[in-house]
Simulated assay, not measured.
Amino acid sequence: MKISTQFDAGSVEVINLDRAEDIQLKIRKDSHSDFLQWFYFRLQGAANQPCTMRFLNAGETSYPKGWEGYRAVASYDRQHWFRVPTRFDGKELVIEHTPQAGSIYYAYFEPYSHERHLNLIGLATDNPWCEVEDLGSTVDGRDLEMIVVGDQDPTKRKIWVTARQHPGETMAEWFVEGLLTRLLDEDDATSRSLLAKANFYIVPSMNPDGAVRGNLRTNAAGANLNREWLEPTMARSPEVYLVRQKMHEVGVDLFLDAHGDEALPYVFVAGCEGNPNYDTRLNALENAFKHHLALANPDFQDQFGYERDKPGEANLTLATNYVGQHFNCLAYTLEMPFKDNANLPDEEYGWSGERSQKLGASMLQAFLAVVDQLR
């Protein structure tokens, strides 16, 4: 048997590989950071053998509650991913599965490769409605790109969408792919109506270094980008510095930051109710947005989510809070599950890249419902 991780986002530590019924592994830390949760590896040479894969340090990971009710994903071709039996005893995460082929991949969630990211940028480059703007370089020297959709008429509303500040939250870029694909559909009436009123500024991957390195939450310098928005620097968090700089140049009327949540098995949003500037106008906008998103896609719900910040106690280092406060605009963090959606469970696939795409596409209806009230 052999386990390998030398590919885009690959990550695991092999402790013992002597017997298929007792494969011992550890989840490794992010680059220059103590965060650990993401895994992605290839197992070879175990076809038709009952395999028991034990992650010995699962109870010591950043979000141990994320393993409760969780099932890992697997794929033979890295195109079609399915859930496999997984259990957690409070200390070890155990995957029990019999591969039907000599090569199989296991991951924390359906990966979104850097190659697919580049293909998404290529899709936008080839579309006459789009302009791809290079914002600068990441810590590792990768391109940080923004997709501008629309005619850039300065009188139109400015809608910003960012994803993958936390690189292991791959559902966020699947979400963006679904949103962008529908936005560029010239036969879609919702898209055409939106683009008549708004321009879109989309950063599909805020953290390409962390994505390629197989990190859960940090960039190549060990920075948690979603705690850098108040005082980003080019040395530690150039990704935030460059995007924030462009926001100040362009302006923001609506901001959506796409994420994944390890523990909660729901799709939900977190807003800016703790910001000093939060008022009845913003509250009404938030409620209208949530109402129309729930109508557009029943995967979304508003019963379960994070505890609301108390007035004036928002953490302004978070993207949503910083942008909502500075631009006095509707700003939301969107969270999708690593597990399944408990309201609409899917035994075979759980929450998936495809469902994330469909949520992204339906988001346009919520945008359209509130675009005229944004200012």
Rank of each mutant, 00 (worst) to 15 (best):
P311T: 13
D30L: 01
S62V: 12
W81E: 02
P345L: 09
L123K: 15
N199L: 08
Q24Y: 01
R42P: 00
Q152F: 06
L293I: 04
G353R: 03
L118D: 12
P208R: 09
K358S: 10
N226L: 11
Q245T: 14
V240Q: 06
L282W: 01
Q100F: 01
R87N: 06
N226F: 11
D18T: 15
L194G: 00
G59R: 06
A361H: 01
S75A: 10
L285V: 05
D143V: 13
G251I: 07
L180R: 11
N48T: 03
E335P: 10
A107S: 12
P128L: 03
G102H: 10
L285P: 12
F7I: 01
Q303W: 07
R213T: 09
N119A: 13
S113P: 01
Q357A: 11
A221W: 02
L123Q: 13
K29H: 14
Q79V: 14
L264I: 15
S103K: 07
A163W: 03
F175T: 11
I95P: 12
K156G: 00
K2Q: 10
F35P: 00
Q303C: 04
G353P: 11
G271M: 05
D134N: 15
E228M: 14
S11Y: 00
S352W: 11
I147H: 09
S11M: 09
P111C: 10
Y241L: 09
L344E: 06
D77W: 02
L56E: 10
L225S: 05
H32P: 00
L242I: 05
G324H: 08
A296L: 00
M53A: 10
H248C: 02
Y266R: 12
M53E: 04
Y349G: 00
L282A: 02
C272S: 13
Q365A: 07
A107Q: 03
G210R: 01
R308Y: 08
I121P: 00
E186K: 15
R157K: 15
N275V: 05
F304V: 15
F175K: 07
D153P: 03
S4D: 08
V176L: 06
C272W: 00
N119Y: 02
K156F: 02
P50Y: 07
S62A: 12
E133R: 14
A47D: 08
